[in-house]
Every structure is written in structure tokens, then in C-alpha cells.
């Protein structure tokens, strides 16, 4: 959607236009849902967070000043809802990534399968991805999902999360390295031979 079209839609939605609001849902709810799902790895929770996010949008839309992209504003809101939900989870489930050793790879790098999807069943892949993400604390999850699944730049993530760019990069480094190490036993060539 073009910025001008987005601006017009938001202005209409601000004045209570039902159809403009529907159009915003049509355009942005899939993105909010995908982000929520990838952070909390649960369909029901993702639907709940998507609803909470759009209820917040309805309440706060008059505060949105069009200086940032609407999607950036939405990611900020949905990230906060994901954080609130995650606070209810048990913190001791999360892996500590404070030490460099915890994210170092194996001594000799084992190459991954040419096509990682070919040998592991789809349901099993989903379970492994869920398990990997759930071991990360929410602040790491959010940075990883924003960068690697949603494709945002580190500058945008810095604005959304209120972290400095170096802090975003550091979290990204640790989250990626942890997830790669966690999944290696399942997708590396030598473990299947």
C-alpha cells in the first residue's frame, strides 16, 4: 500500500469510518498475526494478541501522527502485547545467552542438509521451531522475529524495541547462534548418515 493511500485510510479510520478500519484489518492483521504467532508459537495466543493489538489501535489511533510508518507503530504495539503475555510464562524455561560460550558453535562445523525440509516431517519441524523459540526469552525472540522473519532493518527494530542499535545486533547475534545450534542436531548431514 502506498504511503498516501495509507495516510488517507488512517485519517478516515480516525473519524470512525467502519470501512476504513476494515481495510486496515485486511491490510495489516495478517502481518500482526504472523509476528505474534512467531513470537508466542501458539495460534490461540496469536489470535488473542492480534485482537488486543487492534483494540489498542482503535483507542490510540488519534495519537498516531504519520511520522513513522503505520506498520512500525503496529509492531511497537504488538511487541508490547507479546511482552505482557510472555511475562506470565515461567522465566526459568528460558536459556541464558549472557555468556559467549552459550552461543558458540560446535568445534568442527557440521554442514546442514541440502534441503532441511526433505528428511524431517512437517509436524516435527514445527515442533522443533516451537521448542527453539520458546527457549529464548521474549526480548531475544522479538528481535529475531522482527529481523529475520519480518525483514525489518536494525534501525527500525531499535525504534520499535527502544534498544540501541548495538543492543539489537547483540541480541540478534545470540538468538541466531542459539537457534542455529539448537537445530543443528536435527538438520545436519552427519546426524542422518
Amino acid at each position: 500500500m502506498e504511503r498516501a493511500e495509507e495516510f488517507e485510510l488512517i485519517e478516515k479510520a480516525k473519524s470512525g469510518d467502519k470501512h476504513a478500519l476494515e481495510k486496515l484489518v485486511e491490510e495489516f492483521a495478517p502481518m500482526v498475526f504472523r509476528f505474534s504467532f512467531n513470537v508466542c508459537r501458539n495460534q490461540e495466543k496469536a489470535e488473542h494478541t492480534t485482537q488486543e493489538t487492534f483494540l489498542s489501535v482503535l483507542k490510540k489511533l488519534h495519537q498516531f501522527d504519520n511520522r513513522s510508518k503505520f506498520s512500525t507503530w503496529l509492531y511497537t504495539i504488538v511487541s508490547n502485547h507479546c511482552f505482557m503475555l510472555a511475562r506470565k510464562e515461567k522465566a526459568n524455561r528460558f536459556v541464558s545467552l549472557d555468556e559467549e560460550e552459550s552461543v558458540m558453535p560446535e568445534k568442527t562445523i557440521t554442514p546442514w542438509e541440502e534441503s532441511p525440509l526433505s528428511r524431517v516431517e512437517q509436524g516435527e519441524i514445527r515442533r522443533l521451531l516451537d521448542e527453539g523459540i520458546e527457549r529464548l526469552s521474549p526480548d531475544y525472540r522479538i528481535v529475531f522475529v522482527l529481523r529475520d522473519i519480518e525483514g525489518l532493518s536494525t534501525n527500525e527494530i531499535s525504534k520499535i524495541t527502544n534498544l540501541s542499535v548495538p543492543a539489537v545486533k547483540s541480541r540478534l547475534h545470540r538468538a541466531r547462534a542459539f537457534l542455529r545450534n539448537f537445530l543443528t542436531p536435527y538438520f545436519a548431514e552427519e546426524f542422518h548418515d
Binding site: 504472523r34 492480534t50 554442514p111 546442514w112 532441511p116 519441524i125 522473519i149 541466531r176 545436519a188
Partner: peptide
């Protein structure tokens, strides 16, 4: 090999994102 496995890991997450029901 490390770089390749990192790309494949990210690809797995991207290709396993659900659509909005």
C-alpha cells in the same frame, strides 16, 4: 558451512509462518 546453516535456519522459520485464518 556455518553461513549456509544460518541461512537455512532462517529459511525454516520463514517458510513455517502461518497465514491469518
Amino acid at each position: 558451512a556455518y553461513c549456509d546453516s544460518m541461512e537455512k535456519m532462517i529459511g525454516l522459520f520463514r517458510s513455517n509462518s502461518p497465514t491469518f485464518p
